[in-house]
């Protein structure tokens, strides 16, 4: 673009920002497409049975999950037998851990006594790698959903709990003093003042927990399950149906990505005030 052209075209900051976003969007997906292409080329050249090409994996995925009748929205039975149970366990475990973590966190964050009593126990429990407890849970709970839920809940509660405690604890003293004269009951104070104030930190915890929940869902299905994505993967591996195994891996990647995006959308809805006030005041 020459100097005269630039002068003629009035570029407002708004259009520039929009253009910048469009370029950024195209750019990141171009990189992704490049990655898939490179993967395709590498696996085609290698011709190794353990590494099927992305196109083979894609076909297998369509075969496995998108070959159902129109009445089921083209979803195959395998979706309902494996993917849906997995998702339900993942979301159920995560949500349960979220609720328990937030409620306990709010109480412990606002009570020095509770916090002092429980902090060593919490520090110890959260230091145990959740997969290490699988053998225990396998004995304690019936194989299948109960044992998997236990694993997920125990594994993902800590980021939510600790972040909620932190968020509730660091509530500004001015807010506390302002609300003291309003005579709020303790539960009301926790729900209408502490909870919203802690939400930004709670969401940060929920996002960490969600990705942890996906990991634990797969691990628990690999060792003790009769259905689910993880179970399908381990069965496919034993059958040497490697494209099927890879299909599971790719599906998990997609699931993790989509769930995170969904949570971000919810987060922006719920704590949009937080990000906007931050960007406005620079605090």
């Amino acid at each position: 673009m020459t100097v005269t052209e630039r002068k003629e075209k009035k570029v407002t900051p708004d259009t520039r920002a929009r253009r910048g976003r469009a370029i950024g969007f195209l750019g990141k997906w171009a990189v992704f497409a490049g990655f898939i292409a490179a993967w395709q080329v590498a696996t085609t050249l290698a011709e190794a049975p353990y590494f099927p090409t992305p196109s083979t994996i894609g076909e297998t995925m369509v075969d496995l999950w998108l070959s159902g009748p129109a009445s089921q929205l083209w979803l195959s039975d395998a979706v309902f037998d494996d993917v849906v149970p997995s998702l339900l366990r993942l979301l159920g475990g995560w949500a349960a851990a979220g609720v328990v973590g937030v409620v306990l966190g709010l109480m412990m964050g606002r009570s020095e006594k509770l916090y002092d009593y429980f902090s060593p126990t919490i520090s110890f429990l959260r230091s145990v790698p959740p997969p290490a407890l699988l053998p225990v849970f396998l004995v304690l709970f019936p194989i299948g959903t109960p044992m998997q839920l236990a694993t997920i809940i125990f594994g993902v509660i800590w980021p939510v709990l600790l972040n909620t405690i932190d968020g509730a604890h660091t509530l500004d003293e001015t807010v506390v003093e302002t609300t003291r004269s309003m005579r709020l009951s303790k539960p009301r104070f926790l729900a209408t003042v502490v909870l919203p104030a802690a939400l930004p930190k709670i969401f940060a915890g929920l996002r960490v927990s969600l990705s942890l929940a996906l990991i634990l869902m797969v691990i628990s299905e690999l060792v003790g399950s009769t259905n689910g994505i993880g179970y399908q993967m381990i069965m496919a591996q034993r059958d040497f149906s490697l494209p099927k195994m890879w299909a599971g891996i790719v599906l998990l990647g997609i699931l993790g990505y989509v769930l995170n995006v969904l949570l971000l959308v919810i987060q922006n809805r719920v704590i949009g005030w937080h990000t906007r006030s931050k960007s406005l005041t620079g605090r």
């Binding site: 500004d172 001015t174 807010v175 302002t178 004269s181 919203p196 104030a197 005030w273 005041t281």
Partner: peptide, 18 residues
């Protein structure tokens, strides 16, 4: 007391941003 209200210096902290 119930019938007492406060106004503090730090208005930005005492108001609820949400």
């Amino acid at each position: 007391p119930h019938d007492l209200a406060f106004v503090f210096q730090e208005y930005s902290k005492s108001l609820f941003p949400w």
